[in-house]
C-alpha cells in the first residue's frame, strides 16, 4: 500500500505538442502539483509527441507506460463514441455549463464510467470557451454558402453535419492544413480558439471568419491517470491533492485561454478579416441536424446515450433559472432534442 513517505515521480505527457498553445494547460497543472507535492511527490512532464504520438496517449496511460496524460476526449471516439460528448458537443454545453455539469450535475462520475472501462481515472483539468468558427477565403453568410465548400473540420458528428448542408469534410494531416488553406486546396478550416489560430498564422492566409463556432462551443480536457497507479501508488491525501489541483487548473486554463483570446482576436481584426455570422434560423437548422445524428449515435451506444441524456437533462433543468436571470446569466438555453428517445436509448427510468 502507498505510504506518504515514499518518494514518487509520475511520468506525464500530453496530446498537444509544444507548438500548440493548449499545452499550457498541462504545463500549469504540472507546475501546481509540483508546488503542492513537496519533495516526495513530483510529476515529470514530457511535451506531447515526444514520448508517444498524440493519438497513442490513451493506450499509453491505459497500459501504464505513462502514469498520466493530458487529453481531449474528441480524440478517442474510435475507442468509444461516448468520448465525443465528453470532449465537446456541437452546439451543446458552454464552458460554464460544462463546469456545472461536471462538478455538480453528475458529469464527473459519468466521465469516470467512460474511462474506467479502459483502466483509466480521468480528472477534468482544463478547457476553453467557444472556438473561433470557420476560417477561409469564401464568405459564409448563410447555410446556402456552405454548399460545395471543402472544409477541414475535426470530428465525426461534425462531418455528418457538414454533409447535411452540402459541404465536404476534408481530412488533412495537421501539418498540411496551413498550406492547403493558403494554396486553396481547401476552402476553409476550423482549427481552434482565436489565440491558437493566431499563433498558427491563420490571419495571414484567410479573408473570412464565419462565426459562431457551432461545431464546438467549448472543449474539455482531462488528465488521465492509470487506474493501477491511482489505486495502489497514491495515498488518499495525494489523490485529493491531484483532484484539487485539477479543479484549480480548470479555472486557470479557462481564464488563461479566454483572456488570451482578446489579443488573439485582435490579430485577426488588425488584418481586416471580415466576420460573418449565421442567423438564428440557420443555427436552428444545424441544431436539428445535430439532434438527428446524436440520436443515431444514442441508439447504437448506450453509454453515449447515458452521457448525452445527462447533459441535456441538466440543460433542461437549468433552463428556467437561466431565463429568469437573463440577461445577467451565462450561456444560452437551447431547443432540446427528443428527450424521451434519448432517455429510452440510455436505458434511464
Amino acid at each position: 500500500p502507498a505510504n506518504a513517505a515514499d518518494k514518487i515521480e509520475l511520468k506525464m505527457s500530453s496530446v498537444w505538442s509544444s507548438g500548440i498553445q493548449l499545452i499550457e494547460c498541462d504545463r500549469n497543472f504540472v507546475k501546481l502539483v509540483n508546488a503542492m507535492g513537496g519533495d516526495n511527490f513530483k510529476i515529470k512532464f514530457f511535451d506531447g509527441g515526444t514520448m508517444v504520438p498524440s493519438f497513442e496517449l490513451f493506450d499509453a496511460v491505459a497500459r501504464g507506460t505513462l502514469d498520466m496524460g493530458g487529453d481531449w476526449g474528441g480524440y478517442w471516439p474510435g475507442k468509444d463514441e461516448a468520448f465525443n460528448v465528453i470532449g465537446s458537443q456541437p452546439m451543446g454545453l458552454s464552458i460554464n455549463d460544462y463546469m456545472l455539469w461536471i462538478y455538480q450535475g453528475g458529469g464527473f462520475d459519468l466521465i469516470q464510467e467512460a474511462y474506467a472501462k479502459h483502466g483509466i481515472v480521468a480528472l477534468p483539468f482544463g478547457g476553453h470557451g467557444s472556438e473561433s468558427g470557420i476560417r477561409g477565403n469564401k464568405p459564409i453568410n448563410s447555410l446556402k454558402d456552405l454548399k460545395g465548400m471543402k472544409i477541414r473540420m475535426g470530428g465525426k458528428l461534425q462531418g455528418k453535419i457538414l454533409k447535411d448542408f452540402g459541404a465536404v469534410q476534408v481530412n488533412l494531416a495537421g501539418s498540411e492544413v496551413y498550406q492547403a488553406l493558403e494554396k486553396g486546396v481547401i476552402d476553409a478550416c476550423e482549427y481552434n480558439i482565436p489565440t491558437v489560430d493566431s499563433l498558427m498564422g491563420l490571419q495571414e492566409i484567410t479573408k473570412y471568419w464565419a462565426s459562431p463556432a457551432w461545431h464546438a462551443p467549448a472543449a474539455i480536457f482531462s488528465v488521465l491517470i492509470n487506474k493501477n497507479v491511482w489505486d495502489t501508488k497514491l495515498t488518499p491525501a495525494q489523490r485529493e491533492m491531484l483532484k484539487t489541483a485539477a479543479m484549480a487548473n480548470f479555472l486557470w486554463s479557462f481564464t488563461f485561454f479566454e483572456y488570451n483570446d482578446i489579443a488573439g482576436t485582435k490579430k485577426f481584426l488588425d488584418k481586416k478579416i471580415k466576420i460573418t455570422k449565421l442567423g438564428d434560423k440557420d443555427l436552428e437548422a444545424i441544431q436539428q441536424s445535430i439532434y438527428k445524428h446524436t440520436l443515431e449515435a444514442c441508439k447504437t451506444n448506450p453509454l453515449f446515450a447515458k452521457i448525452a441524456y445527462s447533459q441535456y437533462k441538466f440543460l433542461q433543468d437549468f433552463a428556467q433559472w437561466r431565463s429568469i436571470a437573463s440577461p445577467f446569466s451565462h450561456g444560452r438555453n437551447v431547443t432540446l432534442p427528443d428527450m424521451n428517445a434519448i432517455k429510452a436509448a440510455a436505458g434511464v427510468k
Binding site: 478517442w76 475507442k79 470530428g155 465525426k156 462531418g159 455528418k160 469534410q169
Partner: peptide, 17 residues
C-alpha cells in the same frame, strides 16, 4: 498492441469510422 485494439474492435475517429 493489437490485442487491445481487437478487444474493443477499435475504429477510426473520423467520419469515415
Amino acid at each position: 498492441f493489437a490485442a487491445k485494439a481487437w478487444a474493443i474492435k477499435e475504429t477510426s475517429m473520423s467520419v469515415w469510422g
